[in-house]
Nucleic acid binder design. Structure first.
Lengths: 290, 290
DNA sequence: CGTAGTGTTGAATTGAATCAAGTGTCGTGG
DNA sequence: CCACGACACTTGATTCAATTCAACACTACG
């Protein structure tokens, strides 16, 4: 039994416990089994659940207060009563199937979304029809801020695997931010972070080689997996090589070639969507040695 | 007498009036002459000035209420009394000389800045010493939002020409946003706009050719000049070819070559830093034909 | 079980980088 | 005010990293 983690999985800390195996396979497990897996050894205490349903990572009945992502997502820095107020405006939609769209380019902007489980990609379609991936989103991350200024989403966003999200109507978020200074502060920070991140990618795209971009991408994923308590060294890619290429400004073929070349160098191990980072130090050196 | 406009210049609408000639030359004109130029035919009414000094584009005595950029910059959508409150927290610093730094990478984040005149570039220095330009900023635009999340600026920012700015201490901006819903709303919009803009550049860098990037850059400058009532077809570049290259992910040589090639095609006319867009339609076609 | 989508690998091509040599421009100090 | 030096820009020849084209293998799913 292999051990590659996707953002759909609940990784545990105790050695004895195990986790769900393959991306998108969650639904194939029985609720009972999923419950057993998820309740053993989780870092963040989960409210004793009335029904097993509560445990499924796509379950829409979790409140912000009980969500295991609460310390990464919007509720950070809010106190209990404030979280309760936030909770009231969050809409927990039905899960999204792989390929389903959260919204499409130039749809009217209404909400931002927090990823609860799974993952999403945003992409921009140019007039000439070809698309470019502008971002990947993992649990705890916020989607849709590109629509705030123009009241229309600038990108389309689709689920990469079976995923679930929390919808936060923006006008209500604004209203609440007016009442809760720490929410306003935190949302400014979230947007500032998005800006800083986008500028890093600007640097990456304008000066890094294909190998540097790819190494940087893998390390980025790694630390984002770590953030949600999944293994930073072994994980499943939810996106295709094509998606990665469109994101990094490379072709599918180049991405594939770089993966095999990094493997030959002993830095990573690739098997389809399964990635293992064997030597994070040397991966870092690839980037700084530019 | 040529007619190329820089962000330092005050362009007027009436045909009879003239404007200051060359970038960075403002200080060489007498205050009297500058005053005469600036007061004739300006679109936005300027308060009758007690001293001629008021007219200089770098003059720090202008209030938000009287600033000709007020409808582009932060005060947008604020009413008179609100603008007054904003005014109270804005610090109008001494002008910056060409090359002077507003802040440096990893300085403690304290303020965001609104460009009042001139222009700035932000750039990121990697460990390996080489820098990459992450953005250019023109009058009415906001600088420094990359520092909000981490409390440290992620970039360095320097003046490209003699320039002046309004400093807005961020903690005070937050406090005021708490009181003025429309300020909060507008600042969310400004940040959202920065995010959308950065994602556009992501697309540009990951799929456009050198020619497409350059055309897109020129058209972008053009519409930003138009925003501040300067000619969208004739302007002076305040940045070097090297800066442009670092921004677009190209080398100096390539930028230079593309400029001459676009000139040969009759789309633009280049003379040093003087740019004229001769055929905006065809420039647009270069981009969409990707 | 077949088909569409995804991934790999190789060979040829090419757009932009690099290397190199020059001219042009600006600001400074004599 | 001019001469100098540093920087900015241009142009050409060569190289190279990544794309393109092409053929094939794998996988996953109805």
């Amino acid at each position: 039994m292999s051990q590659f983690w996707s953002a759909n999985q609940t990784q545990t800390n105790s050695e004895g416990s195990r986790a769900i195996l393959v991306a998108n396979s969650v639904e194939k497990k029985s609720d009972i089994e999923a419950a057993k897996l998820a309740t053993t050894g989780g870092k963040i205490p989960v409210r004793p659940s009335a029904t097993v349903l509560k445990i499924c990572p796509h379950n829409s009945a979790v409140s912000c207060a009980s969500c295991r992502l609460s310390e990464l997502c919007l509720p950070i820095a809010l106190n209990k009563s404030e979280i309760h107020q936030l909770d009231a405006i969050v809409e927990r939609n039905r899960p999204f199937k792989k390929g389903e769209h959260l919204y499409r380019q130039s749809d009217e902007f209404k909400s931002v979304y927090a990823v609860r489980s799974g993952s999403f990609k945003s992409y921009f379609l140019s007039d000439s029809g070809q698309g470019r991936v502008t971002g990947f989103y993992m649990p705890g991350e916020i989607i849709g801020m590109d629509g705030i200024a123009s009241h229309k989403y600038a990108n389309s966003t689709a689920a990469l695997e079976h995923s679930s999200i929390c919808e936060i109507p923006f006008s209500q978020l604004e209203k609440l931010s007016q009442e809760l200074p720490s929410l306003q502060h935190h949302f400014f920070a979230i947007m500032g972070n998005e800006i800083a991140k986008d500028q890093q990618i600007h640097t990456l795209l304008s000066s890094y080689t294909a190998e540097e971009r790819t190494a940087s991408f893998l390390l980025g994923l790694s630390s984002r997996y770590a953030r949600v308590s999944l293994s930073p060294t072994r994980f499943l890619l939810s996106m295709t090589r094509g998606d990665i290429g469109e994101y990094l400004g490379l072709t599918v073929e180049t991405v594939s070639r770089i993966f095999t070349s990094l493997q030959k160098k002993g830095l990573i191990s690739v098997n389809n969507r399964e990635i293992e980072l064997l030597n994070i130090e040397n991966l870092r050196e690839i980037i700084s040695g530019s």
